[in-house]
Simulated assay, not measured.
Amino acid sequence: MTDRPGDVPLYSIAVAAQLAELPAATLRLYEEKGLITPARTHGGTRRYSDDDIAAIREVAVLQGDGINLAGIGRVLELRAENAELRRRLDG
């Protein structure tokens, strides 16, 4: 395995779905709801990174816990705000 940044877009939607153990349609839904944002090639093909796969898994866990997609969106927003505030305090 190579040491590459987690944000490098490598995987097609089929591979990403397989890695996340979810149907490709679920990944499209997560994107439609703004929960994930995969990179796009010049031709418009989705490309997912390791970070994207981790985010997809996180969304799936929250959904499995009974949180609806709108609630998951809010949880992710609050986590990002919290991380930014912590970064400012630590920096």
Rank of each mutant, 00 (worst) to 15 (best):
R74D: 12
A17E: 01
D52Y: 03
I13P: 00
T26N: 03
T37R: 12
R57A: 07
E21R: 14
D90C: 09
D50T: 05
E81K: 11
E31C: 06
A55M: 08
A25Q: 06
E84F: 09
Y30S: 01
I36S: 00
S49F: 03
A80C: 04
M1I: 08
S49K: 05
E84C: 04
Q18K: 11
N82I: 13
D90M: 10
I67T: 14
P9T: 02
L89T: 09
L76K: 12
L85T: 03
R79S: 01
E31D: 14
D7Y: 13
G43N: 11
D3N: 14
A70L: 15
A83R: 12
I53N: 06
Y30G: 01
E77H: 15
I72S: 06
L85S: 03
L19K: 04
R47P: 02
V59F: 09
D3K: 09
D65W: 15
V61P: 02
L62T: 03
P23M: 04
R28N: 02
Y11C: 03
A39T: 10
D90G: 05
R88W: 09
L19W: 06
L27H: 00
D50V: 10
P5R: 12
M1P: 06
P23T: 04
E31M: 10
R40P: 10
E84A: 15
G66C: 08
R57W: 11
R40H: 13
V8F: 10
L35T: 03
G91M: 14
A80P: 09
G71W: 11
Y48K: 02
D52S: 12
E81R: 13
Q18F: 04
A20P: 02
S12Q: 02
L29C: 07
L35V: 04
Q18S: 07
D90A: 14
T45H: 13
G71P: 10
L19Y: 12
H42C: 12
R86C: 07
R74V: 14
D51I: 04
R4G: 07
N82P: 07
R88S: 11
A24I: 06
N82K: 15
S49M: 03
Q63N: 15
L62P: 03
I67Q: 10
Y11Q: 00
I72Y: 08
D52L: 01
P23G: 04
I36D: 01
P5C: 12
I72D: 06
M1V: 07
A55H: 07
N68E: 06
Y11M: 00
L10D: 08
A70R: 11
R47G: 02
Y48I: 00
R57H: 10
V59S: 02
R47V: 01
V8E: 08
